[in-house]
Design a protein around this nucleic acid. Structure first.
Lengths: 346, 346
DNA sequence: TTGAAAGCGATACCAG
DNA sequence: CTGGTATCGCTTTCAA
C-alpha cells in the first residue's frame, strides 16, 4: 500500500468542520470533547451512576452534547467491558407458525423488554446442531431458548460460553438444561379421550405430509394411542385430491372417527367427506385442534382441542429468575395446556 | 498489577484440571497458551488469514486446542475491533402474520446467511419511533429493514450509527432511505377491477377491527376507490354475531358485491350470508385475498387476490449490493405483486 | 514463521 | 466532584 504523505500539523481548529466527513458514529470521546469533560464523566452522566455525584450544569452539558451529536452507545463495546450481555436468544420459527405461537412470541418479547432484556430471534435455518450452537454462542447471550433439535453438545457449548440459562423448548427435556415441555401427546390424548367416550374404538389420525409438521403430528398420534383406542395413521397432503383419496381409505377401513391433526386439516377433511356424501358426525366424527375461528364457521361446527401457552409475562419472569438466581438443578415445566371444545362434529 | 511469578515448566500435563474452575468462556489467549503459541497466531489460524503462512503442525496444534477448550470467538470483541458488524436487523412482526410473510422471512434469513450475514429479528413491541431506532442502532447493524412506523429521524439515527443500508418496508418511501414498497392498494385495485368488469358499481369493503390490520385494510380500501367503483367501508369484528349485523347492513344498502379484506374474513362473511339465505355470487359476490387453501374448500369456491413477494434470495442480493456498493441515491422497489384468482364466488 | 503491542468503545476503579 | 487509566477479547500492523 502506498504511503500517503500526511501533513499532521494542518488540522483545522474548529470542532469538526471540513476534512474527512464523519464516516462512522460518534463515540463517548466525541461527546466528552464537545462537552469539555472527560470520557469518564460522560459515562457517569449517561448511565446515571449513583455512586458518583455530578453537578447539574455538567450533566446538562453532557446531555446536550450527546443529543447534538446523535450519540448512541456501542452495544458491543459495552458488553465487552461488562463481561456479559442482556441478550435473550430464541430461534426464529422455521415452519409456518400459527397465531398461537406468534402471538406468544410477541408477548414474550415485550415482557422481556420490560425486564430490560434484548430479545433477539436468531435464524435457525441452514445450520444444524453444534454449528448453530457455536454461532449462537458468539453473541454471548445471557439466556437462550434452544430449539428442539439442539442436543447435549450444543447445550454444553452455550453454557460454557456464559449463558446463565439455557432452556430447551420441545417435547422432552435435554439433560443438563432447563426445559419448557410442549408435550403434544396431550393434544392427541384429549381428542381420543373424547372420541372414546362417544363409543369410538378405532379411529383415523391425519398425518400431514407438510415439511416440519411431523414434530407435532407424531406425538399427537402417540397421545391418541395412549388412551387405548386403536389409531390408524392416515398420511395426507394439503390438497383436495389427496383428501378425497384419504376419504376413500377411511370408508374402506370402516373408520367411524378421525382426529384431523388441526382445524385446517379438519376443514379439508370435512369438505372431502361431505363431497363424498359422508355424514358428519353420524357416519364419521371429526375432531380438530387449535380452536381456530374457522371451526365455528364450519357446518357442522367443529369439535376441537384448544391449546394454550403460558403468558409471555410469566415466561419472562421465569427466565429472569433463572438468570438472577440459577437453581441447583434443571427446572422442568410443562407449558402446553390442551382442553376439549365440544361442538357438533364429534 | 502484581507480577505473578510464573513457573512455566510446572504446568500440569492434563488439559484443565484443578485451580479456580473456568467460570467464563475461554478466550483466544487461553487457546494460545494451550497450544503454546501467541494470540496472533491463534487469530491467523482460526481465520485462515491468507496474508500470512503458518506451518501445518502449528495449525493443527491451534485447532486442537480450540476444540479441546470449546473456544467460541466473542462476536462483540471481534466487531469492536473490526469497526463494523455483519448484522442485518429486521423487525419481528408485531401482528399475527400469514404464511406468506413468515415463509418469506425464513427464506430471507437463510439467504442472508449464505452471504455470511447474521440476520437478527428485533422485537419492535413497546418502543416507539426514535427510541426504537436508538435501541437498534446500539447493535451497529450493517443493514436495517426498518418498519413502516420509523420516521425520518429514526432513519437518520440508524444511518449515522454506521448502517450502510437502511431500507424501509412499507406503503411508501421515507426520504433518504431505500424502500421496499408493499403497496396494498394494488390488492384492492385488482379485486375492484374484477368486480367492475362483472358489472358491480357499488361494493362493500370489509374493514377488520382487529388491532394492527388497519395498516393493510386502509390502503386496500383506497385501492378499490382508485378504480372508480363506489366503496362502502364495513367495519367488522371477527365473530359470527358481528358478521350477521354486517350482512344485514349489506342488504339494507343493497350492495351487490363485497371485497372481504382477506380469505378468512371472506369465509366469515360467506357463512353469515349463507345463514341469512343470501345467494353467492348471484345476490352478493365475494372476493377475498391471500389465496389461502381454505378458499378452495369453500362453496362456492372463493375468488381471491393472490399476493406474491420476491424471493428471499433476490432480496438478500439486493441488500448485499446496497451494502457493498452504496448507490448515490435511494433505491425504490415495488415488491408486492397482486393477481386475481378467479373461482366461483365473484 | 512467529511474537509484541496498539487500539476498537465503554466503564469503573483510584487519585486528585 | 472530576480526570486519568487499566481493562474486556480480538485483529492487525510491525519487528524480529
Amino acid at each position: 500500500m502506498v504511503e500517503k504523505p500526511q501533513i499532521p500539523s494542518q488540522q483545522p481548529a474548529s470542532a469538526e468542520p471540513p476534512g474527512p466527513p464523519r464516516s462512522s458514529a460518534p463515540t463517548s470521546a466525541d461527546v466528552a470533547r464537545q462537552a469539555g469533560v472527560s470520557r469518564a464523566t460522560v459515562s457517569y452522566v449517561l448511565n446515571n451512576t449513583s455512586a458518583v455525584r455530578i453537578s447539574e450544569p455538567t450533566r446538562r452539558r453532557v446531555h446536550e452534547a450527546a443529543r447534538e451529536l446523535g450519540y448512541v452507545p456501542h452495544a458491543a463495546a459495552r458488553s465487552l467491558r461488562a463481561g456479559h450481555t442482556r441478550i435473550v436468544l430464541m430461534p426464529a420459527p422455521d415452519v409456518p407458525v400459527g397465531t398461537l405461537y406468534s402471538g406468544f412470541l410477541n408477548e414474550f418479547q415485550w415482557a422481556l423488554s420490560r425486564f430490560d432484556y434484548t430479545a433477539v430471534q436468531y435464524g435457525s435455518v441452514g445450520v444444524g446442531g453444534d454449528d448453530a450452537a457455536r454461532a449462537w454462542a458468539e453473541l454471548r447471550p445471557v439466556a437462550v431458548l434452544a430449539p428442539a433439535g439442539m442436543g447435549r453438545r450444543g447445550i454444553g457449548i452455550l453454557q460454557r460460553s456464559g449463558a446463565r440459562a439455557v432452556i430447551t423448548l420441545g417435547a422432552e427435556p435435554v439433560e443438563g438444561a432447563h426445559a419448557l415441555i410442549a408435550d403434544h401427546r396431550a393434544v392427541g390424548r384429549v381428542a381420543a379421550h373424547h372420541l372414546r367416550e362417544r363409543g369410538h374404538r378405532r379411529i383415523g389420525v391425519l398425518m400431514p405430509r407438510e415439511e416440519g409438521l411431523d414434530a407435532f403430528a407424531v406425538p399427537r398420534l402417540a397421545g391418541v394411542r395412549e388412551t387405548g383406542v386403536e389409531a390408524v395413521a392416515l398420511p395426507v397432503a394439503y390438497d383436495e385430491e389427496n383428501a378425497a383419496q384419504v376419504v376413500a381409505h377411511i370408508r374402506e377401513l370402516g373408520l367411524s372417527a378421525v382426529f384431523a391433526y388441526n382445524d385446517e386439516y379438519a376443514m379439508l377433511l370435512m369438505r372431502a367427506l361431505q363431497d363424498a356424501g359422508v355424514a358428519i358426525p353420524d357416519d364419521v366424527a371429526v375432531v380438530g385442534a387449535d380452536d381456530l375461528m374457522l371451526g365455528r364457521l364450519l357446518r357442522p361446527r367443529l369439535t376441537t382441542v384448544r391449546l394454550a401457552l403460558p403468558s409471555g409475562q410469566e415466561l419472562a419472569e421465569f427466565v429472569d429468575r433463572l438468570v438472577r438466581t440459577p437453581p441447583a438443578g434443571p427446572e422442568i415445566r410443562d407449558v402446553l395446556d390442551a382442553s376439549l371444545v365440544r361442538r357438533e362434529s364429534a
